[in-house]
Design a protein around this nucleic acid. Structure first.
Lengths: 135, 135
DNA sequence: CTAAATGCAAAGCATTTGCAAATAT
DNA sequence: ATATTTGCAAATGCTTTGCATTTAG
């Protein structure tokens, strides 16, 4: 898709087929860890090197093109930068869902208590999703 | 301190000098990553093996004696299990502060939006502490 | 005395680096 | 044509494992 090309260019990233596929996979899957991303990329580029995936992830992190989400008991996952949001993780099927919460009050509370000048937050909820709850 | 001994015993952990020092360091420092913990332990036990530190951390995690806190752009830190709380991290001096927030409303909001049965949350605020702000 | 923990060395993963060949602009 | 990226292989770094020795209960 040409919007993916624009997205890469707007972040000063040279457009390569490998990078386009990374963008495509991340926008269709939402969040992926390195190994899953590599496995999916290999379907399209069997000779792709894992080193290339690492290099691109690091580059894209530097360019603020993607972000790294640290999770408990799991490898970090990566997602394209988008509106500020929180995550909900299913402990059973590992599904990660984005949720948009109003965190203003909490942010203020945290500022008042800590006396820090707060800039960002990372909020993750862990539990079990509807499907897994039934099963 | 004998309370540290009781703490270990109550979690079915054999009491060793190395473990007592781990408890002592964690209760005095609050949060430590592996390397810092290892460095501090070596002051008291110069021949301590890093493998022993890893083994103990894993054991203590299993026994729900300590917990692992994943942070952005940093190695995980470890802390003794205590009341549910959130963390505030200074990007300048890396100080980590515990804060006790009322997250009930947010928890409910997240539950309503996601339809997950939520169990735990991990809330981290990043910013700059008072001392570093001035400096 | 028996079970468990420690320390060391080796093994096993994860991530990064260097460089020649290929590709993007 | 030049600069950048890719893929490979080697290097580095982090964590776990196996085993002999020591320590705890």
């Amino acid at each position: 898709m040409s919007s993916d090309i624009q997205l890469l260019k707007s972040h000063q990233l040279t457009v390569t087929p490998q990078r386009l596929e990374i963008v495509h996979l991340l926008s269709s899957h939402g969040h992926l860890d390195i190994d899953t991303l590599y496995a999916l990329l290999q379907e399209k580029f069997p000779s792709l090197s894992l080193a290339t995936v690492y290099k691109n992830i690091n580059l894209m992190l530097e360019k603020n093109f993607m972000s790294e989400v640290p999770l408990e008991n799991r490898k970090n996952v990566y997602e394209l930068i988008k509106e500020v949001h929180s995550h909900v993780v299913c402990r059973e099927c590992n599904t990660i869902v984005d949720i948009f919460l109003d965190t203003k009050a909490l942010f203020e509370e945290a500022t008042n208590i800590s006396h820090f000048q707060l800039e960002t937050s990372n909020i993750v909820f862990n539990g079990i999703c509807e499907k897994c709850k039934i099963a």
